[in-house]
Design a protein around this nucleic acid. Structure first.
Lengths: 214, 214
DNA sequence: CTATGTTAGCGAACAGTGTTCGTTTGGAGG
DNA sequence: CCTCCAAACGAACACTGTTCGCTAACATAG
């Protein structure tokens, strides 16, 4: 058949279609052949635009990570900075729950993730945290977001609901439980975030006191 | 060939061998055919002891989760209880990093995980936390542990190290960085845990105050 | 103790998977 | 104009998880 007059494929089209498949049918639902079918093309053609399936997934991952907001440090408020970063990070993951297992595993290569991490680190240092503490705080916050994303909206929603069923037998209705599970997830995340920030605030205060004394 | 005089296979033997493969060669390294080869058996035989590959993985998961210690609530100290639970949980995951992505996704079916969760919940309530708060705290702590396990061991150690390389260019030695990455992971987790617990302690104090007032 | 049914092993096959190779053909650059 | 690159294709390879039918040993009932 040879090369077509107008290109049939592009990396963006591939990534978008692939993400749609993953969103609707899960990570396992995405196969190169199926993606090719959706794009009206043969499977081998995909490899002209992408070296690997992995590379394709990373491309999608970059698009998702680009949604994360790290502008909360603007006015020097580290607490607000972390909070908006964490919430926006979590929202980005929640928008594509099926991608979470991939996104959480081996994120190092994603340049956008690195950029975001640096922004956070810079914001914390600018706000007065020592560099090493800033690194730890950044990592800790990421733990929280990734952990929340993995355990709540990745994969088995029905299963997770079961936990709450056992805990609250009086809430028997299954269809109401889904909403309740969401609610509990939200509250748990907020509790974890706020308690963590409160704990940090204590440390920050001590840090400032020590600095004043010197 | 028919049935052998002495059984060649058992669920335990299968799970152990499978875990060894996963530990050494990753989740993708485990295939039913390879497992069969290691066990000196044909692949179809495996399905006499296990319905699915998934079921096999769940079996391994149960074994790992059984290592988690939830006895820290014994003397009514909720803070100690959560701390030992979280640390032991993290240690169990760290012992088998390649299993973490599976363990973190869809954990509802694992009965041992449920049992552990209930123990934690009970310990918190016994220590004076309201049931709903106990649920939130349990979920939050799990977020922390799972997130820490996912993002640190998550595959590409080289990649994760790169983050720290950019931040601490003076630590250039690659072989020392590996140790440093571990160190930073440990410290980040401890910081997150302690700060979180400090924040909870504040809330607990306010809770007690309000209860006294009534 | 014999008959019956269950179970653990095996061999072969099926439907999928990601990926590579060689070929054809359009478009871009010297 | 000729050459070289790149995009599409068809076919194949080496895998994957899983199922089927078969054999032979164990467990149990009569």
């Amino acid at each position: 058949m040879g090369r077509p007059k107008t290109p049939l494929l592009s990396l963006d089209r591939m990534a978008s279609a692939a993400l749609e498949i993953v969103d609707s049918d899960g990570l396992d639902g995405l196969s190169m052949r199926r993606l090719a079918t959706v794009l009206g093309v043969q499977v081998a053609s995909l490899y002209n635009h992408v070296k690997n399936k992995d590379e394709l997934l990373h491309e999608i991952g970059n698009q998702i990570m680009a949604q994360v907001d790290v502008t909360g440090f603007r006015d020097g408020d580290w607490r607000q900075g972390i909070a908006t970063w964490a919430r926006s990070y979590r929202a980005a993951l929640r928008a594509h729950p099926n991608m979470v297992p991939f996104l959480a595993t081996g994120p190092g290569r994603r340049e956008t993730a690195l950029a975001r991490a640096d922004a956070v680190h810079g914001g914390l240092v600018a706000a007065g945290w020592p560099p090493r503490q800033a690194t730890l705080i950044g990592a800790s916050t990421k733990y929280l977001v990734v952990g929340a994303a993995m355990t709540s909206f990745a994969r088995g929603f029905d299963d997770d609901v079961q936990i709450y069923v056992d805990r609250y037998p009086h809430l028997g209705q299954a269809h109401r439980l889904r909403a309740h599970a969401d609610e509990i997830d939200d509250e748990s995340f907020e509790l974890a975030l706020q308690a963590f920030l409160d704990g940090l605030a204590q440390r920050f205060a001590e840090l400032s006191k020590a600095a004043d004394k010197r």
